[in-house]
Design a protein around this nucleic acid. Structure first.
Lengths: 145, 145
DNA sequence: TATTGTTATACTCTATAACTATA
DNA sequence: TATAGTTATAGAGTATAACAATA
């Protein structure tokens, strides 16, 4: 352990460790998953946000992707061409396009979500008690945010 | 809490919460940081990997980015044009280009790393005892991997 | 007038394949 | 022959600006 780590606040060191987990473990995993399912990262992120039952406006997907709305047009065009997503009118505002998954889109998203949900080695290898403690602390953190 | 969450293993639920933290909190933060420092995400990732003292071959950066080596050429071209990175010969193998940060590159990387290291609200707001417990568990997980 | 989504444009990232220099 | 890095190419993501339809 470095001197810097010892003098950091516990939250800072925890965050640094989380970033290691995300950059070194999750990022390669995510990229591999994308190519396995033949979707690009923003396409996968879009599928994760959408649903069949509760359509969301294009602007919401732009917010979710943290990108300009003009980019969503092309991303959705390609997902729509593959039959995974559909554009629906918004009865209340004719400017708005509502986005929703098709049945095929739901199937693909479910499979992707299932794969993303599998805990990586470093977490799965933890003693059960530590897994529970980790879960409880993260629940506390996320529920507040 | 969902029924699914209750029936998952603790590691699976912890991982799901971590992903929430990463997608909802870290990703927008990362993208904002990139535009603030006028670098693209792969450029920022490259700066994070490099150093002034211990040059690494181009191939190592490709591994780090999880992308083909041909892409690194352009990414490094642009960082080099800004005076942040330099290519050095490898005395042992004249095919290899070693990559290292310039002084300016070190300064920028340090500032970026400092900003990335700031724990986000959900973590910073945790009680001190939970921060320490989180840190200890993550140390255990990461040290094994 | 303001907003939603699209189009046009220029730049960057990406994988693949072909190439050069070196091993 | 094999490998490291580059170049060429085509497809995708990105921000910005301008536009049409609608509010």
């Amino acid at each position: 352990m470095s001197t810097a780590a010892r003098t950091q606040s516990p939250a800072a060191e925890a965050w640094s460790l989380l970033q290691t987990l995300m950059f070194d473990v999750q990022r390669p995993r995510f990229i591999t998953l994308c190519s396995e399912f033949d979707v690009t990262p923003p396409q996968l992120m879009t599928l994760r946000r959408l649903d069949a039952d509760t359509p969301v406006p294009t602007s919401e997907v732009a917010r979710w992707l943290t990108c300009d709305a003009s980019n969503v047009t092309g991303i959705v065009d390609r997902l729509e061409a593959r039959g995974l997503v559909e554009r629906r009118p918004d009865p209340g505002d004719r400017r708005v396009k509502m986005l929703a998954l098709t049945d095929e889109g739901v199937a693909l998203r479910d499979e992707i979500v299932r794969r993303l949900a599998m805990p990586p080695e470093p977490l799965a290898a933890l003693p059960r008690a530590d897994q529970r403690a980790l879960r409880d602390i993260l629940r506390l953190a996320v529920d507040r945010g």
